[in-house]
Design a binder for these strands. Structure first.
Lengths: 108, 108
DNA sequence: CATCTATTTGGCGATATTGCCAAATAGATG
DNA sequence: CATCTATTTGGCAATATCGCCAAATAGATG
């Protein structure tokens, strides 16, 4: 029952785990608009650059981001933009009263 | 920049973290169809009942499930069904080639 | 009331995550 | 080639997660 679903569920869990950190959610949110280099993301986040680099690595390994070296900077971009649709539903979890109805009819 | 978004992103990360485990994804998937009691879920999963109970507690505390005592059993149900729409997009992350186009046009 | 069943909680060892520092790498530039 | 800049990697301490066992709780039932 569970064992037959386990491999796929483990793969899905890895993707969700990669997203399940506030700094990584911030990165995904910022990359919605445009690609950004590590140094600019680091400035926005205000953590050590090695910390940001590791967060980017987690998202990249999960298949959520891709990167692109240009000059001496590395730019990251969203590989799968539909990730952003998650947030509507996550908000519905956080505010069940207002959001549930909206959520069912829309793309959350 | 990041600090102003941090509280909301932390809240969202908690929800995603609650989902980011294969056993918990299985539970959510099963509860799509109907509510199920702890003992039946335990049988389907094949882990210790205390382990399953703790997974259920994580999902409940995140606002994803609610429970309902009937007789001497406790039934759990999905509180926010749109959670299930996540998976289309998660699959798009896992199989970017085939799924990306579908995903953009649909509700993933 | 004694007992049975279903579930939760406490606790423990094993493992994973997080964030910083320091060091390594990789190109760009003088 | 020496050096600078941008980024990644290794390592470490602190903290969190996971899954089992044993014990506690809470109703149901005889």
């Amino acid at each position: 029952m569970y064992n037959s679903r386990k491999p796929q569920l483990e793969a899905r869990a890895k993707v969700l785990k990669a997203l399940a950190h506030p700094t990584r959610l911030f990165i995904v949110e910022q990359l919605e608009k445009q690609e950004i280099c590590v140094c600019d993301l680091t400035a926005m986040i205000g953590a050590d650059i090695s910390t940001v680099s590791k967060h980017l690595s987690v998202l990249k390994q999960a298949g959520i981001l891709s990167d692109d070296k240009r000059g001496n900077q590395i730019f990251y971009r969203l590989k799968v933009p539909c990730i952003l649709n998650f947030f509507g539903c996550v908000e519905a979890v956080l505010n069940p009263e207002q959001e549930t109805l909206q959520c069912i009819g829309s793309d959350c």
